Structure formats: structure tokens, C-alpha cells
Simulated scan of single mutants.
Amino acid sequence: MKTTDVSRAALGRIPVYLRFLESLPQDTETVSATVIAKELGFGEVQVRKDLGAICGSGKPRIGYTVSDLKKCLGGLIDSRNGKAVIVGAGKLGRALLDYGGFSDYGLDILAAFDTEVPPNGESEKPILPLDGLADFCKKNNVSIGVIAVPAEAAQEVCDKLCQSGIKAVMSFAPCRLTAPEGVAVQYENMALSLAHLKAQIKQ
């Protein structure tokens, strides 16, 4: 099973399933989708669909072997190189750099890069000069680049990331980017997401 074969919503629930499985008593050998759904407050159909798509169907009247399920779910998250860097060490870039939740999804943010390096101690992880980006990415086998710079600088940063061997780009800049064939680009717009959420508020 490849991560690209799993829906974004299902992928987002994998760490929740894993935390639940880790919380079970050590002598628990099997668990059913019914129990998982009840304990997590999910719909049973949704749990069966998620686990079925990722790990196959459980055994009738038995469910899933806990050890096998943990191995399957954990293996999906860890199956790809999740090393990443951030370009742009402003407030957004530093917040992303220090966020610990990425590791739940097999991602490891190694460092941030900027044209102006702030004083040491502003972040737990290194913030490095932008001119060292290519060497760092190649040396550390980085596959993902996060763009956290203004729109006018985003394309130049995207070009630098692609030249550094990056295979996937996530951009928070409010503009469209051009990347070479084979480089995946995903756009994140928090303002748009909030506007969409606001539109769902019942008057």
C-alpha cells in the first residue's frame, strides 16, 4: 500500500489509530473495528473503510491482530523519506520549524533557511543561511521543501529547492508556482481554509 493510494482524511486518522493501539494493555492480542470506533468516537463504517483500505479486512468475530495492525499503520507512515526543510524563517516558518506534530506522520523537519539568520536560541532547530540550502539538502537526502516566504520570492525559492534535489514542495505563498516534471507541489492557504470554515457556520 502506498501513501498516495490512501485518502488525505484517512491518512490524517492513522496517528489517532496508532495512539489508541499503543494505549491498549500489553496482553491485548486482537481488537475489532467496532471497539476502535466506539473508543475513538468514529463511525464504525469509517473505521472499517480506513483499515480495510490500508491493512485489509479483519477476521470475522475476531477483528485485527494488534501487533499486525500497528506494524501496518506505522509502516505506511514510515514508508517514504520524510526529511524536510523550510525556506523562510519568519513567524510562520519558525512556528512550523518548532511544531512537534509532524513526527506523527513520519516527517522530520531538519532545518529552516533564510537570507537573514536570526540570533541563536530563537528555535530548537537550526536556522541556516539560504546559500547553504543545496549542499544541506543533498548531504541529508532531503525530499520535501516548505516555502514560507512572500509571494514575490516564492518562485525563486521553488527553483532553488528543485535544484537542490527536492521531490515535493508545500507552499504557503499566495501564488502559483512552476516546478519541473516529477516535482509535486501542494498549496496551503490558511486564510482560505478559515473562510471556508466561516461559511459553514449556521446563521
Rank of each mutant, 00 (worst) to 15 (best):
K2H: 12
S7W: 09
G12S: 01
P15V: 01
P15E: 01
Y17E: 03
F20D: 00
L24Q: 05
P25G: 09
S32W: 00
S32C: 07
S32D: 00
T34P: 04
T34C: 03
I36H: 04
A37C: 04
A37V: 02
E39F: 00
L40V: 03
Q46W: 05
Q46G: 06
R48S: 13
R48V: 11
R48I: 10
D50E: 13
G56W: 11
G58M: 10
K59A: 15
R61A: 15
R61Q: 15
I62E: 15
G63E: 14
V66H: 10
K70Y: 03
K70N: 09
K70F: 02
L73K: 08
I77G: 06
R80Q: 13
G82N: 13
K83H: 12
A84D: 09
V85R: 05
I86V: 15
I86Y: 09
V87T: 03
V87E: 04
G88W: 06
G93P: 11
L97Q: 12
G100H: 07
Y105D: 00
G106K: 00
L107F: 13
L107W: 11
L110T: 02
A111E: 08
F113I: 07
F113T: 08
E116G: 04
P119Q: 13
I127R: 04
L128T: 13
C137W: 12
C137N: 09
K138R: 14
N140H: 14
V149P: 06
E152L: 03
Q155H: 03
Q155G: 00
E156S: 15
E156G: 13
V157I: 14
D159T: 09
D159W: 06
K160P: 02
L161K: 01
L161T: 01
Q163N: 14
A168D: 00
A173M: 01
T178R: 09
T178E: 12
G182T: 09
V183W: 03
A184N: 00
Q186V: 02
Y187T: 09
A191R: 10
A191I: 02
S193H: 00
A195R: 12
L197E: 12
K198W: 02
A199S: 13
